[in-house]
């Protein structure tokens, strides 16, 4: 195991805090691209720093990194395979119809019939 001094870890922690501050204040510029980069780009940088320095991924055998990243790749696959149905509102010969019901939690589970309104409406 690489022998870093206490100072080293404190330094990494300092960098992480600086990144945290940036990611909080990035969205205040209200530029979408900047928000995206400061929020998610920095999340990746922070995660990288923690994984490399705190979890000592850098001194593990290479296959540890491979197996974890393979799991991540599988999650990307899941996303890629499911998003065309779940994320999209319509597609080839199908369209989602139900409007999201907004409001406080006054609805009780299963009390209302999901398709009733639109199903009935289309019969008019």
């Amino acid at each position: 195991m690489a022998d870093h001094g206490t100072q080293y870890y404190v330094k990494i922690w300092g960098i992480l805090l600086v990144l945290l501050v940036i990611s909080i204040f990035g969205p205040f510029l209200e530029i979408p691209a900047v928000t995206l980069i400061t929020a998610f780009g920095i999340a990746f940088v922070k995660a990288y720093l923690v994984v490399k320095n705190f979890m000592h991924m850098n001194v593990q055998p290479a296959y540890v990194g491979y197996m974890l990243s393979t799991c991540l790749v599988f999650m990307l696959l899941l996303f890629a395979g499911s998003a065309p149905d779940v994320m999209k509102k319509d597609g080839d010969n199908w369209v989602k119809t139900v409007v999201v019901v907004q409001g406080p939690a006054t609805m009780h589970h299963g009390e209302e019939n999901s398709g009733d309104e639109h199903g009935g409406a289309e019969l008019h």
């Binding site: 499911s82 149905d85 989602k96 139900v98």
Partner: peptide, 23 residues
């Protein structure tokens, strides 16, 4: 608990379960 992850009437999606299940 009364969430609606898979209930289309409240913004859920039943297909999501099918993907999670078959994955």
């Amino acid at each position: 608990i009364g969430t609606h992850f898979f209930d289309p009437a409240y913004g859920g999606d039943p297909i999501l379960w099918q993907h999670l299940f078959w994955f």
